[in-house]
Design a protein around this nucleic acid. Structure first.
Lengths: 166, 166
DNA sequence: TATTGTTATACTCTATAACTATA
DNA sequence: TATAGTTATAGAGTATAACAATA
């Protein structure tokens, strides 16, 4: 279905949502495929991303940042250790804890993912006129604002994430 | 980080991608939560969605439409049967096949999800001026165009989905 | 011989709960 | 007593491969 200017307002709003949902699907496919080529999953890449933000971290800290259970982090780190992206180093002062630390390969991969994200933004928006880009980001911000408040409201009634994560 | 008009072009492009990625995350959270309230997961809802498009279908047909393995469909249908959304009916002419069919509850739920999607589009875009909405959808279409061709190109080199799905 | 859907097996992500080793 | 991370157990989604029933 194409987008026509003579659609009803309601129809145009539905079209907008359809496009967003399709964008989510295609974007997820692209991300999954790209990561798979590097031997990563989205969850493991998320962990690498947090690790680059924070430097060597305990699994507890990573669990809190990612808002998942510590058990989950054990599994993700197991996978990342097995595939050579990180190591478990002993914590200098707390012998219960481990410091998840990049290997050379892990650090290089994390940096490359960041670089590729920048390239990707060029691919997506390089051909878009300034005013169009402006307007697009404004629209995104508005939608995000509505969504965030809706999620926050709904989340207020329930608990946010696993009982374990913080 | 706020969006400033005096950013570099590259910076503004990166901001746009950041917003999109955040949108994906928040949207996924919202969707997952909404479906969970109805006793559904995203995969099972996807199956219901296909079923509403096509009417009672064989598992093979659903697997093809969803581009997943038939084994996967077996599991999803098992779950939907156990939770009362669909039944397995015997195929009138092919005794190997089953026809996955809505229960009353399943059909009502699928319809409600569609209605709620329309309401959701009102929530997201109801407050957006016509011109802004226009511009936003145009931007989405451009991004989708680039993405689709990138994915198609990458998919051309590999296989698209499980060997089983079609 | 080809196809439908199952069972067998395996991997990933996710959670809670019990437990070990340390603070 | 509290905390870090593990093992135990469970459920969901995904895949391939072997197999039974039927075309």
């Amino acid at each position: 279905m194409k987008y026509h200017h003579d659609m009803t307002r309601t129809g145009r709003q539905e079209t907008a949502l359809d496009r967003i949902l399709e964008l989510v699907v295609v974007l997820d496919e692209d991300l999954t495929r790209t990561l798979e080529q590097r031997g990563l999953t989205t969850s493991r890449a998320h962990l690498l991303w947090e690790l680059q933000r924070s430097g060597p971290s305990t699994q507890r800290a990573i669990a809190t940042a990612m808002r998942v259970s510590t058990r989950n982090i054990t599994g993700l780190v197991d996978g990342l250790v097995a595939t050579g992206f990180v190591t478990r180093e002993s914590h200098p002062t707390d012998r219960r804890a481990t410091l998840v630390t990049f290997t050379h390969h892990g650090a290089a991969t994390a940096q490359r993912l960041l670089d590729e994200q920048q390239e990707f933004s060029h691919l997506l928006f390089g051909g878009m006129p300034d005013k169009q880009l402006d307007c697009f980001v404004t629209g995104l911000d508005q939608v995000l604002g509505v969504l965030r408040s809706a999620v926050a409201q709904a989340a207020g009634a329930k608990n946010g994430g696993p009982s374990d994560a913080r």
